[in-house]
């Protein structure tokens, strides 16, 4: 195989996997053995091997979320050995490779735990609460018509860079999963500060933060206590500074918006 390490020894691992048949049933940890895992495999490929074994035996395969497997879509969402997306910093589960583990390791794999993220099945969780927060205000309304020229609105490089940093949030929910309070504030703050920094976002600036925070609270996410687990576990490195921006935006909007409700 091109790019593979010829010296890499295959590994045998013990997996403790959360199994749960459906949203309203109770689940439990089930132990599995996987053999001959290449260190070049991604974590999800290792789970594919497990599922092939299970299918061969006629067992139900383990359900888990994944899509692009390139670290950009935000679909994969495993809590591995007590950490969002596993032990490696700045990495999604799909980009976590088995070379980070050793032969004979026991790996515990659980779904994101939050009241607002109910478990669909096994390791797959329903993160549509994030979609509803985005629908509440995480957008810019633009009239249809000819596409505006790319540089029609001048934006300083520093501002566009900071907005871009916030925009890199892939909405995976690792922040919620890592947070002691299952707070979604790092996610919400990334979206709010991205749009608050840019002139296109100024039109809906106040209603956006008011509505997104209201939706976040309605979904049952916790409140931030500035622990910092979220930023430490974020695969794209969204910083806590965004939460300070969210708090400022929220306070300013509440104090000055025309919304009396």
């Amino acid at each position: 195989m091109a790019g593979s390490n010829p010296n890499a020894k295959p590994m045998n691992l013990t997996l403790n996997v959360w199994r749960q048949a459906g949203r309203h049933t109770s689940g439990k940890i089930v132990e599995y053995q996987v053999k001959d895992i290449s260190p070049d495999m991604s974590f999800l490929e290792m789970l594919d091997v497990l599922n092939e074994d299970l299918l061969r035996k006629g067992d139900d395969p383990v359900a888990f979320d994944h899509d692009c497997r390139e670290g950009i879509c935000g679909s994969c969402d495993l809590f591995i050995n007590g950490r969002s997306h596993g032990p490696e910093k700045g990495t999604t589960t799909c980009q976590l490779h088995m070379r980070k583990f050793s032969d004979g390791d026991t790996i515990t794999i659980e779904p994101w735990r939050a009241n607002a993220f109910p478990v669909n099945k096994d390791l797959s969780v329903d993160r549509s609460a994030f979609d509803r927060i985005i629908q509440a205000g995480g957008y810019v309304s633009v009239n249809t018509g000819g596409a505006p020229d790319g540089n029609e609105i001048p934006i300083p490089k520093e501002i566009s860079d900071r907005a871009f940093e916030a925009a890199t949030c892939i909405g995976c929910g690792a922040c919620v999963a890592a947070c002691k309070n299952a707070s979604a504030m790092l996610f919400v703050s990334a979206k709010v500060s991205q749009l608050a920094l840019l002139p296109q976002g100024h039109v809906e600036r106040k209603t956006r933060v008011e509505n997104m925070v209201a939706q976040m609270d309605k979904e049952g996410f916790g409140a931030c206590t500035n622990i910092g687990s979220c930023a430490a576990e974020c695969p794209v490195g969204i910083s806590l500074e965004n939460i300070a921006i969210l708090n400022r935006e929220f306070l300013a909007a509440k104090a000055t918006s025309n919304n009396l409700a």
């Binding site: 403790n16 959360w18 689940g27 940890i29 809590f79 050995n81 007590g82 950490r83 032990p87 515990t108 659980e110 735990r113 939050a114 009241n115 607002a116 890592a178 002691k180 309070n181 299952a182 707070s183 049952g220 996410f221 916790g222 622990i227 910092g228 687990s229 430490a232 576990e233």
Partner: peptide, 17 residues
């Protein structure tokens, strides 16, 4: 309440905070 009824079996928050 936000964490939900089922917590983590393994949670190494000491590694991130």
């Amino acid at each position: 309440a936000a964490r939900g009824a089922t917590g983590y079996v393994s949670n190494h928050s000491e590694q991130n905070s």
